[in-house]
Design a protein around this nucleic acid. Structure first.
Length: 481
RNA sequence: GGCGCCGUCGCCAAGUGGUAAGGCAGAGGUCUGCAAAAUCUCUAUCGGCGGUUCGAGUCCGCCCGGCGCCUCCA
């Protein structure tokens, strides 16, 4: 089964066939850099990072563009609030973006254009729309005339008449039609501004994506992504602008991820019910957040809760422990000497099931279910039961690890993960590692003299501290509950 | 008011019309000095009511409940 992707434009799953063979152009709306990213931003980043990784796995050369909106009312407001230059606001939150996303193992896109570096491209586009009578100047602002675009509403399934009868249309006397939107906004005194044929001003929000996607990916490209909340008006307006300018459909597949909810409600700035990524990292490992966010299908809403993150922590710990065991068991094998190793990995049942799941509109939940099933096989083989050869185990381990890596997992070694997880869990507990090791040593000697009562007393004390111990062939290991 | 989505085991979560994946939690077994980990076994008829069909969680209608977009928002 070939790759199927749900296209918002047609509202159904379609076979994915890129414009050029083996090449994909993908544009994803990034963030407006005026504040720290929250879990909703993390989800969008992870979803499209996973698409990106899977496309590359399938052998595509992906031109992946993700922008930064670095000029906007919110940025100007934030600059005024903090008493700093608006560009300083950008610098600060772009740095924070990289810091927070980097911890999630988000791969770098091919291009990361900023709006303010593309003012000339936007002006060209606006001029073209004005020349074609699809946009008009009004008291220093330039508006797109939606009546000039007969397909307006095609993406979001809205019709103009319904929109106009809605109560929430912005009243603006300078517009010819209430639904017209700004391409260029006249600047107020003291605001950042750029010269234009219509006087000093700054770009409207939507035009940047049309201009930059056109510049980096061409008039028509394969995929445009973003959160569901961007469907209207942002992406609808992009289609109107790009199509109005070039006469071509700009995007072949529109892909939108669902929201992160809290108690069934959308996590959002305006509701104030959001958690920033860095807040979450204080209690949960970044990779746990990543695993949690791919544990349901990308188009469904996902409920953010402590319980769900704790469950995800358990799953990821199990994954890493399984991985460590399988690697240990097969470490004596030199994989490069095995014949047809990579072909055997490609033919492994897990690889096949994983691909089938991912091909079905990136069903990461099912992909992970297959990984869980295969993990049982790995653990059984590692414990010496069953009859798989070392080579078969190595093949299965490699297939399993590769699947996880396509999902953006396993970017640490099991040891690193365990260490980082300990540090996070220990933040509040602040346990003394020396004391823990002392008790374990005490238990060891008690056990050697078969003083079970004393051994159990040591363990009880550790348990009370929240330390779980595990006797293995390599000695006693421990971790925090 | 317009458009749209969702309601599956205690919790999370998949599910192309043919008799319900996976995870967490729970129960029991194996292993262990005892544990832990691992592993095995067990636990749902899919919000309600009708309809279409040989057959529906899966299509249609109505109802109940929840949510989203229509303003900035990933």
């Amino acid at each position: 089964m070939s790759l199927q992707i749900f296209n918002t434009l047609t509202r159904k799953k379609e076979e994915f066939v890129p414009l050029k063979e083996k090449q994909i152009g993908m544009y994803v709306c990034g963030v407006t850099v005026y504040d720290y990213c929250h879990v909703g931003h993390a989800r969008a980043a992870i979803v499209f990072d996973t698409f990106y990784r899977y496309f590359q796995y399938l052998g595509y050369d992906v031109n992946f563009v993700r922008n930064f909106t670095d000029i906007d009312d919110k940025i100007i407001n934030r600059a005024n609030e903090e008493g700093i230059d608006w560009q300083e606001v950008n610098r600060k939150y772009i740095a924070a973006f990289y810091e927070d996303m980097g911890q999630l193992n988000i791969a770098s896109p091919t291009e990361e254009p900023k709006a303010t570096d593309h003012i000339p491209e936007m002006l060209d586009m606006i001029q073209s729309l004005v020349d074609q009578d699809k946009a008009y100047e009004s008291q220093g602002d330039v508006f797109y005339s939606i009546k000039s675009f007969k397909d307006y509403g095609c993406l979001s399934g809205k019709n103009i008449d319904d929109l106009q009868s809605g109560a929430r249309v912005e009243v603006n006397e300078t517009k010819r039609d209430p639904m017209d939107f700004a391409l260029w906004k006249k600047s107020k005194p003291g605001e950042p501004s750029w010269d234009s044929p219509w006087g000093p001003g700054r770009p409207g929000w939507h035009i940047e994506c049309s201009a930059m996607s056109k510049k980096y990916l061409g008039d028509t490209f394969d995929i445009h992504g973003g959160g569901k909340d961007l469907v209207f008006p942002h992406h609808e307006n992009e289609i109107a602008q790009s199509c109005g300018c070039t006469g071509k459909q700009p995007v072949r597949y529109w892909v939108h991820n669902g929201f992160v909810n809290i108690d069934k409600e959308k996590m959002s700035k305006s509701l104030g019910n959001f958690f920033t990524m860095r807040e979450v990292y204080k209690k949960y490992h970044p990779e746990v957040l990543r695993l949690f966010l791919i544990s349901s299908h990308y188009r469904s809403p996902i409920d953010f809760s402590e319980k769900n993150l704790e469950d995800a922590t358990k799953v990821l710990s199990r994954f890493y422990e399984g991985l460590a065991g399988a690697r240990e068991k097969t470490k004596s094998l030199d994989l490069t000497t095995l014949s047809d190793f990579s072909e055997k990995v490609a033919r492994h049942p897990l690889t096949k099931k994983f691909e089938a799941a991912m091909n079905d509109d990136l069903n990461t939940a099912v992909a992970m279910a297959h990984m869980n099933e295969e993990l049982r096989n790995l653990n059984t083989a590692v414990s010496g039961k069953g009859e798989p050869s070392l080579e078969e185990l190595a093949i299965a381990t490699t297939a399993w690890e590769a699947a996880g890596q396509i999902l953006g997992l396993f970017f640490l070694t099991p040891e690193e993960f365990e260490k980082e997880l300990f540090e996070i869990k220990n933040t509040d507990k602040n346990l003394d590692v020396g004391k823990i090791e002392e008790l374990i040593a005490g238990r060891k000697s008690a056990r050697q003299s078969k003083n079970w009562a004393e051994a159990d007393r040591c363990r009880d004390e550790l348990t009370a501290m929240g330390v779980l111990i595990e006797d293995t062939p390599n000695g006693t290991e421990w971790k925090l509950k």
